[in-house]
């Protein structure tokens, strides 16, 4: 399924399955106040990303311009317009984790090519850092060994 979606993205139109999913999500949010972010979250949860091809349908359903939808998608760090190619580890690089040595930890990972290490600013576990999140699972008190084990686990 993920394979198909990756291929679809390179075409100008999305597959019927993706269209149907987007229509279903749009229908589920009909009549809500300020529905755009919830819609984008749901699309991303269902497909792993927000396909370019979804923009016209969203714009029409909400009676806003495609530019506005694009503007919102591109504003927020969370929304991706392409599927992730590698498993993602979100590593907190904010001040408290810096104070607990995350930069040295991250520097040891520069050659990592099997996972993508994304930066996140704060997971709210600032007294037990360095911290990371994989999917919705949190990991605290990371050191080089623990982080390497996580990389092995998801890669």
């Amino acid at each position: 399924m993920l394979q198909t979606m990756a291929i679809n993205r390179t075409m100008t139109t999305t597959s019927a399955a993706i269209d149907a999913e987007i229509d279903r999500i749009l229908a589920a949010h009909a009549g809500r106040e300020g529905p755009l972010l919830p819609i984008l979250h749901d699309i991303q949860a269902a497909l792993g990303y927000v396909p370019e091809g979804a923009i016209p349908a969203i714009a029409e359903a909400l009676n806003i311009s495609r530019a506005e939808v694009h503007g919102v998608i591109s504003f927020y760090h969370d929304f991706h317009t392409a599927p992730a190619t590698r498993p993602v580890i979100k590593l907190c690089r904010a001040e408290s984790c810096q104070a607990r040595g995350v930069e040295a930890l991250a520097a040891g990972l520069v050659d990592e090519t099997r996972v993508s290490i994304e930066t996140v600013y704060c997971l709210g576990l600032c007294s037990v850092g360095p911290n990371a999140m994989i999917g919705e699972t949190l990991h605290a008190r990371l050191d080089t060994a623990k982080l390497s084990a996580l990389v092995e686990q998801v890669a």
Binding site: G34, L37, P38, H41, L62, F75, H77, D78, F79, Y121
Partner: peptide, 21 residues
């Protein structure tokens, strides 16, 4: 309602815009 990874949305007027979509 769930944010989308924008720190600035902690500012109240930016949060309101975000809630409005």
């Amino acid at each position: 309602r769930v944010g989308a990874g924008a720190y600035v949305c902690g500012e109240e007027t930016s949060l309101l815009n975000s809630l409005e979509g």
